[in-house]
Computed example of a mutant assay.
Amino acid sequence: MERVNGNPPDVAALAEFAATRSLTVSVAEASRVVGVGTSTAYEAIKRGDFPFQTIKVGGKVRVVTASIVRVLSGEPDPTPPAAALQAA
């Protein structure tokens, strides 16, 4: 597995994260996972360089939990970041 910020991924923590969340999480929660502010996350989503897959649901942006787990565990995420939002 790939290192995240110089540290190996905590597989148990990622599994717990996935098991205790719904299929999508808010941008605020996803931004806390990567240690950036919510405004920074929304700006990255607009630019198309947020590292996780996003979708738009009822006018709100949601982040796909499985995408967070894949990216942080070092697995390739088959969906380009923010692709769904850009298409909306």
Rank of each mutant, 00 (worst) to 15 (best):
Q86A: 13
T24P: 06
G74M: 08
R32P: 05
E75I: 00
S22E: 15
A82L: 00
G48C: 10
K60D: 03
V57S: 06
A84H: 04
T20P: 03
P9S: 13
A66R: 11
R47Y: 03
A88H: 08
K60M: 02
S67T: 05
N7H: 11
S73Y: 10
R21E: 05
V71S: 03
A28L: 07
G6W: 08
V63D: 01
R70T: 03
D10F: 11
V25F: 03
R47Q: 13
F17Q: 01
D49F: 11
Q53D: 12
A82M: 00
R70I: 01
L72T: 04
R3D: 12
K60C: 01
I55L: 14
I68T: 05
E29N: 01
A66T: 11
Q53R: 08
T54F: 05
T79R: 07
G58H: 06
F50M: 12
T54S: 07
R62G: 09
G58E: 12
S67N: 06
A83H: 06
V27S: 04
L72I: 08
S22F: 08
S73R: 15
R70W: 05
V64G: 04
S67D: 06
N5A: 09
V69A: 09
A13I: 04
V34F: 15
A30Q: 06
G48D: 12
V57I: 07
Q53T: 13
F52K: 01
V71G: 00
Q86F: 09
A15N: 13
P9C: 12
T24R: 04
R62D: 11
V63A: 06
R47F: 04
R62M: 15
V36E: 14
L14Y: 08
A88S: 08
R62V: 10
E2M: 03
A13E: 14
N7Q: 14
T79Y: 10
I55M: 10
A44I: 01
R21Q: 10
R47N: 12
T38M: 07
P81M: 01
A44E: 14
S31E: 09
F17T: 01
T38N: 11
A84E: 07
T65W: 10
K56F: 00
A88K: 00
I45C: 13
P76D: 15
G48E: 09
N7R: 14
L85K: 00
E29L: 07
A44V: 03
A66M: 10
V36F: 11
G59N: 11
P8V: 08
Q53G: 02
V34W: 12
A44Q: 15
E16P: 03
G35Q: 14
V27I: 13
A87V: 07
A88T: 02
P8I: 02
R62W: 13
L72W: 10
I68H: 06
T20D: 04
R21Y: 02
N7C: 10
G35W: 15
A19P: 00
T79S: 09
S39Y: 09
Y42C: 04
V61M: 05
G6K: 08
V4K: 01
A12Y: 07
G74P: 09
E75L: 11
F52M: 05
K56R: 13
A66C: 06
V69Q: 06
K46E: 14
A82Y: 00
T79H: 11
F52I: 01
V34C: 09
L72M: 15
A66Q: 12
A83K: 05
F17I: 01
P8T: 02
V36M: 15
S22L: 11
M1W: 04
